[in-house]
Simulated scan of single mutants.
Amino acid sequence: MVTPEAWRPDSAERRLTQLGIKLPSPPQPFGIYAEAVQSGNLLFLSGMLPTEGREPKFIGRIGAELDAEAGQQAAHLAALNALAVARQHLGSLDKVRRIVRLGVSVATSGDIRNQPKVADGASALLQDVFGPDKNPSRLIAGVASLPLGAPVALEVIFEVATSEAP
């Protein structure tokens, strides 16, 4: 994770290169919905899952089939997919002015209380790419199950530069 003191104001695209991150191909929707919808200067992403291609890379619930560390890795992969979808829609991640909100649904079993640790897998990646000054507000919810048996699902709202905005 990048600390505020160590952060240099580079572009998001340059940070991906510096971090050695190659984004995956954007996932296709698993139902009848749009993965990215832009309204004005807000870009809404929904249903970002930890998939590779058309298959879930992680299956299970935190506290049952998976531990928090695996959940964190799943959240990281879901965030990579979110960045791939955002780049596809915007043309460049450099158009992101800030991340407004990160919603993280975590499939859990039993009395699990470490959902924030799981969500940090997505938050850390977003901070590394965009910098601590663009950290979003965050909502985390434990749920009984998620599509494809995934342990996490992300909803992301970005503020983006538009042709109308300076």
Rank of each mutant, 00 (worst) to 15 (best):
A68W: 09
G142E: 11
P166F: 14
L66K: 09
A150V: 14
L19W: 03
E155T: 14
T162E: 11
L154T: 00
L23D: 04
S46V: 13
N81L: 09
N41F: 11
A75V: 00
A36S: 11
L80E: 09
E164N: 12
L83A: 00
S123Y: 04
L23F: 01
A82R: 00
L90E: 06
L23N: 03
A107F: 06
R138Y: 09
D67I: 09
L125M: 01
E52C: 07
L66W: 04
L148Q: 11
Q115M: 13
G149A: 06
L66S: 02
A124P: 00
G53W: 08
H89A: 15
L77P: 00
P24H: 04
R61F: 02
S105N: 15
P29W: 00
R61K: 15
V143A: 07
M48Q: 14
A153V: 12
S123E: 06
L43C: 12
E55S: 15
R87D: 09
S39V: 15
E159L: 11
K22S: 15
A68M: 10
P4T: 04
P26A: 10
L45H: 06
R15S: 10
P151G: 03
L146D: 03
G60M: 11
G131S: 09
V85P: 01
G149D: 07
P132D: 13
R61G: 10
A86Y: 05
L154D: 00
N81T: 05
M48T: 07
L93N: 02
S137G: 15
I112C: 09
R101K: 10
A74L: 01
F58I: 08
V129C: 01
N81R: 02
M1W: 02
G103N: 09
P29I: 02
G121L: 02
L154N: 06
F44C: 01
K117V: 14
V118E: 02
I157T: 15
F44H: 13
S92V: 08
L139C: 08
V104I: 03
E55Q: 14
L16S: 04
A12T: 10
Q127D: 13
N135Q: 15
V96N: 07
I157E: 14
A74I: 01
E155D: 11
A68Q: 03
A84W: 04
Q88Y: 08
V106P: 06
R101G: 04
Q18S: 12
V156F: 03
Q73D: 13
T51D: 08
P116L: 06
K95T: 04
P50R: 07
A150E: 03
F30Q: 13
G131E: 10
G121F: 02
V2Y: 01
M1D: 08
A165C: 06
A12M: 09
R54Y: 05
I62S: 09
A70D: 12
L148N: 01
M48A: 07
A124Q: 12
G53E: 04
R54A: 14
P4G: 08
P29F: 03
L49I: 05
R98Y: 07
G91R: 02
K22Y: 08
S105D: 14
V152H: 07
A141V: 10
L83W: 01
F30N: 11
N114M: 13
F158W: 10
G53A: 06
I21Q: 07
A124S: 12
A161V: 13
F58D: 05
L154Q: 04
K22V: 14
G91N: 05
G20W: 01
D94Y: 06
E5C: 02
L45I: 10
R61W: 05
